[in-house]
């Protein structure tokens, strides 16, 4: 108990210290408030956005894009990871192509997707899918490969069909790997949405940030960043809770 409260005190101290230093330095013009803004201004701007409600349609757009790319990317990644993880031959055949595709910096695809899918949400979703897919794919692939052969053999002896093997053995076994990739994927899905919006859109947090940048409104840029990171942390918490429930067999309470 004492330990956790001292950890919390340390965490608060670091955050408060950094914000305070920023505030003081900017107020005394040691750093130029025009380029660095001030925590108090940024807080006020976020509060204004939330109270007036102007931020929510933008946030909604960004989250919808991130959610769609997350869902589609996870579905495609898990499916491909499963199929290639089970077929050694196919995995060897397509391996160089996967390496090549994964080597493309996602951000250079943004202009192409804008041309293909237009300025609406789908160009952002496409960009997000290309990032989420590979993270989830590699982890699922590894998870399926990682299954203890004796678990598969035992299930086969007990009469499991290929479908039952997938459902009762492979998927739960890969789940730990998949979950470890979900935290990262959510972050990337949101980044992709914002980058896409930044490059060309009429809605979304990325659009808000681009607008603020266009008029040298540093406070607006930082306020956009604060809103985004808050959302990412909250969503991450949700994933952690789901993970703790689904993987509860890993650290069950001791007996008696």
């Amino acid at each position: 108990m004492r330990r956790s409260s001292s950890v919390l005190a340390g965490q608060v101290a670091i955050g408060a210290g950094a914000l305070l230093a920023w505030q003081v330095l900017a107020a005394r013009k040691v750093i130029d408030p025009f380029f660095f803004s001030k925590p108090s201004d940024i807080g006020a701007r976020v509060g204004e956005w939330v109270l007036s409600g102007t931020v929510f349609p933008h946030l909604g757009t960004t989250l919808l894009e991130a959610l769609l790319s997350f869902v589609l990317g996870v579905l495609a990644g898990v499916t491909a990871g499963f199929v290639l993880g089970r077929s050694g031959w196919l995995a060897l055949v397509v391996e160089p192509y996967i390496q090549i595709a994964n080597a493309i910096p996602r951000i250079v695809l943004a202009p192409i997707f804008l041309l293909w899918f237009g300025l609406g949400i789908w160009s952002k979703v496409a960009l997000g899918v290309t990032t989420v897919f590979f993270i989830v794919f590699f982890n699922t692939f590894q998870g399926v490969r990682d299954v203890e052969p004796v678990l598969l053999n035992n299930a086969r002896i007990l009469g499991a069909s290929e479908r039952q093997l997938a459902r009762h053995v492979l998927l739960p076994s890969a789940l730990a790997w998949i979950f470890s990739s979900l935290q990262v994927s959510i972050g990337f899905a949101i980044i992709a949405a914002v980058v896409g919006e930044y490059m060309g859109s009429s809605r979304g947090i990325g659009y808000v940030i681009a607008q603020a940048e266009g008029v040298f409104d540093t406070t607006g840029v930082f306020a956009g960043i604060v809103v985004l990171s808050t959302v990412v942390v909250l969503v991450g918490r949700g994933v952690k809770a789901a993970e703790a429930h689904l993987l509860r067999w890993k650290n069950p309470p001791p007996v008696r």
Binding site: E148, V150, A155, L158, H168, V169
Partner: peptide, 20 residues
Amino acid sequence: QDALLPWKTVIENVLLGLVF
């Protein structure tokens, strides 16, 4: 080796053959 499925409870493991 241990071949029980670690993500299933004892009773779920025991009933596995019937499920399959």
